[in-house]
């Protein structure tokens, strides 16, 4: 099967970007959780940076529909591709790339920073949502369970929480205190801020998928109301990052509303 999948991706790559591309994600208002929202926004930002047309299609069962069981995923013609890395690869296959001008060293750099965000900010978001009691009870359990009828919502919350906790244990994050988690995020923001170093984007004047990913996560952290606002406060202490987020929002998302 994987071979067939690969072949189908290869074949799909030869076709131009279809018109009816749809991005599937959970409902933004009622359902979506912080980490998922960040990833969905990152993909949206990336596609917009590539000037590719797509429609956002909210579905309650988007997560189950996804081939990797993670949101978001896009459907382009007959092809279904999930998550930012997969989608970047898919888009590159069509000859569209944001990283053409980067040399190998810069590309490696970019990948390192992207993996930093995945392994720190994304994990911290999962920790806040599922381990922190206050956030879990007031936000996560209600939103995650909102699409299921009773008693499935309880069962599903329980199952999903166990799943996340298992993942956090494997990453050795579960036993961290919330202060330690915030410290990790602080360090990560510091590193990003230093890398940005006053430039418009991480790599000179053009955005890359790294910018999309940073935008997705930081914008979501800044705009999502949670019982604990510490995460947003940490990000606010880095004006460079705030500027980047505002720049991308203005450049790629505000235009849409003006139409």
């Amino acid at each position: 099967m994987p071979l067939i999948d690969k072949i189908s991706v290869e074949l799909g790559a030869q076709e131009p970007w279809p018109k009816d591309v749809k991005l599937y994600q959970p409902y933004e208002v009622e359902q979506i959780l912080l980490p998922d929202n960040a990833n969905c926004l990152a993909v949206q930002a990336f596609l917009k940076m590539c000037h590719l047309d797509f429609q956002v299609e909210p579905r309650p069962n988007a997560e189950a529909m996804s081939p990797t069981l993670k949101v978001p995923f896009i459907k382009a013609g007959r092809f279904v591709t999930a998550e930012l890395e997969g989608i970047v690869q898919f888009v590159n296959g069509k000859g569209i790339s944001l990283t053409d001008k980067l040399d190998n060293e810069q590309k490696a750099d970019m990948r390192a920073y992207m993996s930093l965000i995945h392994s720190v900010i994304e994990v911290a978001e999962l920790y806040i949502c599922w381990v922190d009691k206050e956030t879990y009870n007031e936000v996560t359990s209600i939103r995650n369970g909102s699409i299921y009828p009773w008693p499935l919502n309880y069962i599903q919350n329980f199952a999903k929480r166990n799943q996340v906790i298992k993942k956090l244990k494997a990453l050795e994050w579960y036993n961290k205190s919330i202060e330690e988690v915030f410290q990790e995020v602080e360090n990560c923001c510091e590193a990003l801020s230093i890398r940005l170093d006053g430039k418009n984007y991480f790599f000179e004047d053009n955005p890359t998928e790294l910018d999309a990913l940073v935008f997705g996560h930081l914008f979501t952290i800044l705009t999502t109301p949670l019982p604990k606002s510490d995460l947003a406060n940490i990000v606010r202490q880095h004006p460079q990052l705030i500027n980047l987020v505002q720049r991308i929002e203005k450049e790629y998302f505000k235009k849409e509303t003006r139409h």
Partner: peptide
């Protein structure tokens, strides 16, 4: 695929 997921 659209129909995947949990149902009760």
């Amino acid at each position: 695929r659209v129909q995947s997921g949990l149902s009760l």
